[in-house]
Design a protein around this nucleic acid. Structure first.
Lengths: 199, 199
DNA sequence: TCGTCCATCTTACTCGGAGTAGGTTACCCC
DNA sequence: GGGGTAACCTACTCCGAGTAAGATGGACGA
């Protein structure tokens, strides 16, 4: 066969392969329980190679997170271009997000669970992903809302991100809830507020 | 001095002391970077003692989380008793929460950061804390809202918890935002929705 | 006052996994 | 084909979680 001896692969390819395997292992076993030896084994390469490419275990995790973030950014930004108004933009963005987390469970799992190390680069990296989303929302809102209280607008953006993240986790436990339904639930509370459902 | 030789302390007291120190160290260094030797040192006791009391490093973390959760539950439940209506109950609960995270930063830090190990008891424990809050909200809402769509109500509760958690983290970066202000921001979006601010 | 018992505590290890020093080999290009 | 380098490996060190087995302070009965 052509792949009888998987050897001497160019740097870029090997790197992608390593990230792919690592994402798998980290999301299955969890960051702490995953061992570099195991990842190396699955890649079909020796441990020092991983260190050659990523410097440390956390560096490898970082690469996985960055990879996921890039995809998430691409997907959500694309979704909101050409929206008619704020409500439409918010809805499109939410839908893109909920579709993403359904289709790429492993990547999402890393982003949501693996903030293992407070004060470390990895934690900052996950936080950076949220900031990216928050900025997107904030930009979206500043374009469509009355400005005035910047602090309030910022708080609102944080609020939306946190709410959706939690709702996404909830969706993992509820397969029957489609991305469309999740979006609708989110829009219902976000846009109309709880007041209109009070007895 | 009376505490010249800190020795032979009764079990319950030693346990509390250990949890106190561990909470400090975990929230300062982070779970992964904290070492059992260091904690033992600070307690003024040898490492096997920690294992005698908590079985494992994660067990010790668990104890810290449970401790924090108990306090959080107490505080938020007490806050909502005697509320006039849903809006009032929500506002009181939110305020209690935001006050808690300001006054007990370390405890909160553990709850928010230390989900280090996916699939492990500690991760479940943090999740359990959220469930506790979610249930509280859900119960609160079912008492004051038109029922009908249970799934929607559950989603809304998750939504509130996630949103407030994120807003709380945002507050850490903004000392100028008081618990009262945070509560007001949260109520504004939650209760009235974003629609009433759209241009 | 003194011995006995046991909960509390200690020293001195093992073991596994992160990270590394230094040498080896396949492939590209002339 | 032969030199050069990028990709790769073997064989370690080191640190921290977890443990086995023994030492000791002090409460309490005689």
């Amino acid at each position: 066969m052509t792949t009888a001896k998987r050897k001497r692969m160019p740097r870029a390819d090997r790197m992608r392969q390593m990230i792919e395997v690592a994402e798998q292992v980290f999301s299955e076993r969890g960051y702490a329980a995953a061992s570099m030896d195991e990842i190396a084994e699955l890649v079909g390469v020796s441990k020092p190679m991983l260190y050659e490419y990523f410097n440390s275990k956390e560096g490898l995790l970082l690469a996985c997170i960055r990879e996921s973030r890039a995809v998430l950014r691409e997907v959500t930004e694309q979704a909101t271009v050409g929206a008619a108004d704020a409500e439409d933009a918010l809805r499109r963005g939410l839908l893109a997000f909920f579709v993403f987390i359904r289709e790429r469970r492993q990547a999402w799992s890393l982003l949501r669970h693996e903030m293992a190390l407070i004060g470390t680069p990895a934690a900052d990296e996950v936080e950076e992903t949220r900031r990216q989303q928050t900025d997107l929302i904030a930009a979206l809102m500043s374009g469509h809302f009355d400005s005035g209280d910047d602090l309030r607008a910022e708080a609102a953006a944080e609020f939306v991100v946190g709410a959706c993240e939690r709702l996404a986790i909830w969706c993992e436990r509820h397969d029957e809830v489609s991305p469309e339904a999740a979006t609708e639930y989110a829009m219902d509370v976000l846009w109309s507020g709880l007041a209109h459902r009070a007895r």
